[in-house]
Structure formats: structure tokens, C-alpha cells
Design a protein around this nucleic acid. Sequence first.
DNA 1: CGCTGCTTTGAAGCCCTTCAAACCAGGTGG
DNA 2: CCACCTGGTTTGAAGGGCTTCAAAGCAGCG
Lengths: 243, 243
Amino acid sequence: MSHPAIDLHLRKLRLRDDISAEEESAIRAVVSESELLPPDTVFIRPGQELTSSTLLLDGILCRFKDLSGGQRQITELHVAGDFADLHSFTLKHLDHSLMTLTPCRIARVSHEALRRITEGLPHLGRVYWFLTNLDACIHREWEVSLGRRSAIQRAAHLFCELRTRLGVVGLARADGFALPITQSVLAECLGLTPVHVNRVLKELRERGIVEFRAGQVTISDGPALETIAEFDPAYLYLEKRAR
Amino acid sequence: MSHPAIDLHLRKLRLRDDISAEEESAIRAVVSESELLPPDTVFIRPGQELTSSTLLLDGILCRFKDLSGGQRQITELHVAGDFADLHSFTLKHLDHSLMTLTPCRIARVSHEALRRITEGLPHLGRVYWFLTNLDACIHREWEVSLGRRSAIQRAAHLFCELRTRLGVVGLARADGFALPITQSVLAECLGLTPVHVNRVLKELRERGIVEFRAGQVTISDGPALETIAEFDPAYLYLEKRAR
DNA sequence: CGCTGCTTTGAAGCCCTTCAAACCAGGTGG
DNA sequence: CCACCTGGTTTGAAGGGCTTCAAAGCAGCG
């Protein structure tokens, strides 16, 4: 039953905390058969009653909120190994939507199962609580980008964040990673227009720092990228905390 | 020991979930003696190891992140009844700072006590997990404001949010509430310059919608305010969810 | 009564948006 | 095999919302 891609999820957890063998098998036991969603599929809508959470095994998806006039703000990107809506365990329904950006392999974990393992294994419960708090950390950093950083800084910062997060699950190297999304999606993340995102990408490309082409991010000058972004990965909690 | 202002905290909880008598007394038992912090006090800094969480009994405080060049982005405001850093229970240290904006009465709840009551009373544990997820909901809505809304919409939206959240704990009426902060602080919330915040407030005042003067928000046309903001309180989860 | 911090106003400029159109690659069907 | 279509990318030109810089006004307080 246990899908091999769950290893990515465990890798994400073990970077931050010790996961015992018992906890690991509890996790593996509650993950259902996986399913494949095509790109651009909105699979959770605001207000919809939810009884399970979605573990992303492969692909990229996003949380977003709609505005009147058809505008959208993407509030977070999710990569393999992430729980996309673990917070629905306590919220029961969401205030936003979830949409795949690429083909996505997902698995559902029922809230009933989450309740069982978080009650039976309180430490694991706190680890999952931590994960939802980590999403909040990412939200805060995006608030900083959207509120205070220039367009080029926002783009650079997002690339830094994704390189780091994808790196945790072995899907990025220092010189780049796959990011098969459009510039318009990037614009919806960055609070910019697609036109301006295009100009910013051009500048980053011409300055020899990073190139975004054909769904691939190629980083030629990592230090310069981090300097522009003023990137500090502290908000991603990449080290183990005291248990 | 139990400070009367804890009632505000319980009111906030009971709006969203049933809290049993046993749970209530457990909460009351773990809240320490309160203390008073003067305004503009940064009392938690990034990276600082934390062993307790801060319950705000009275006053207004904020979470913020510093940028190079002395700029700041405030990522959330907190009002009486809020846990300001409940997330530090799982994060162990924060990626941002906490600062009082007004004189604040606070109480500390040790992480050890939180661990005890969340393990012993799993439902209460989920209620507190929910609270941290509610903060994330607020972060997401701020991302939408910062990313997509105009200056006047951002200001209007923040006033709507605060009226609602303060209303929950009986500190706001339909026609206004106390908000003893400066326009510069407002600017740091809204991702704007103080100068432009001033112009936006002028417009809202001259259009007869809302007035911000002397630390007081006076709403003369609530419906117009919500229309400008496109305010939908769904993200604040104001109703009880299924247990 | 003059300091100090906050608010208010003016003028100029820039970053990003808006509008418009050309370009380009991949897929489809004639 | 190429013409066509479609969705994404790129570029140009003009405009506007917000910033920047500067200074005046104002209230509270020692």
C-alpha cells in the first residue's frame, strides 16, 4: 500500500525532528492508495466540507484565493512531500482553493486516521502541528515579499525558497530545478502582472543570475540570487529542533 | 490566579468550538500571573529559544519581520484574547519578532504546561492547533491584500478585520473601536509608506466612510467600507465547526 | 513655551500596470 | 508536410498609483 514517494515526506519530517520507527509505520499505514490529477485541476474549494488531507507525492500545486474581477493571489506553492491541506484537519473546511499546476500524484489521509495517530502518538501530533506552522512561516515570508520587496527581489526570493524546499526532498541541485509552470502563475504568486514578471525574468537572465525557460530554473549565480533576494532560509526551519 | 481577562480568550475559543468545564479549568490552571509591558517593546526576537507562549490579555501587539535598510513588514496584529506566539510551542524559536504597540497585559503559558494539557485533553490540543491555523488564515488574507488590493482597499480591509476580531471579544461595536497605533504602524501592516496611508485615510474620511483619529476608528458607513474592502469574514471562521 | 513625535500637504519621479500587438513553439487536421 | 490554431512569451508605448523628498502644521508634554 505504502507509496515509495512517502519517503520524500519522511525526509521532510526527519530534517526537523526525530521520527521513530513506530511513528514511521503509523504514517505509512494511514496513507491511502495514490491517485493522479491532471494539471490546472481545482480539487478543493472554499467552504467545502473536508474529511481527509492531501499528501502531495509528486508535482506542484498551489493554494490560492479568488478576488472579484477574476484576479487570483496564490498564497503558497507545494512540492512533493508536502501536506497540501493538513490544516483542514482542524479547520474542517478551507477559506481558499487548492489547484494542481502540473500533473500531481496525491494520496489522501483521512482526518479520522490523523486523529487516531495524533492522539496515540502525541509527539507525532506535534510534528504535524509543526508542519502547519511551517506553512504559516512561509506565508509570513510571502507577506514580506508582497509588502516590501521589489519585483525583482520577489522573483529572486521565490526561486531561492523553491530551490531550498525542493532541495530538501532531493528535487533541486544548487544550479537549478524543474518548475513547469507559466509566467502567469508566477505573477499570481508574486502579486505582479505577467507582463512585468516577463521583464523581471529578462533582467535576471541578462544579468547572468538565473534563467527561467521551458519550465526549468537554471541558476548560474546563486550567491547573487540570494543577495538580490536578501534570502535567509531561517524561516524554513532546516535544522532539528530540541525534541 | 486566573486573570479575569482569560474570559476573552475563552470567548474566542467558544465561538469556534465547545469547551468543556474540564478543559476550561485546565486552561485557567496553566495561565500564570500576568505582567504589563510598555508600548513599543520588542519582547521576542528571531531565533531566541522559547519555553513559553504569550497570551495577550489586553492591548495590541504585532508580529513583524525586519528587512535590511530598517524597513519592517508587520505580518499580523494581535488583540486581547489572542495567543501571540502559540506557534512557538512547536517551532521552539520564531523566525520573526513580537512587539507591543500599546501597553499590553500578558500572561505566559509554559510549553511544558501546553504539552501536558494537549496530551491529556486531545480535543483541547486540536482547538489550540486550530488557533495557530487561524493565524495562518489571517496571514493568507494579508497576502491577498498586499499582493492584489489597492491601498484604499487594504486599509478598508484591515479595519473590517479588526472590527470583526475585536467584536468577538467585545471590544468593538459596529460603529468603531479603539486602535491606538500610529499611521506609520498602519503603513507597516499595509505595505505602504506612511505618507500614502495618510492620503488614503483622508480619502476614506472625506468620503464619509471611516475616520481614523486619535487612536480611534469611527465607522460611519460600514456597508461601504466592506464593499470597498470586498470583505468576506469567512477566513476568520466565526462559526462553530463540527466537533 | 519650545521641544518632540505624529500628521498633513505639495511636487516630482519611478516602478509597475495597462493596452496592444508581434512572436514563437507545439499540436492538430487538411 | 505545411497551414492553422492556441497558449504562452516578448516587446513597445503610455499612464497611473504609490514613493520620495521636503517642509509645514499640530498636539501633547516637560
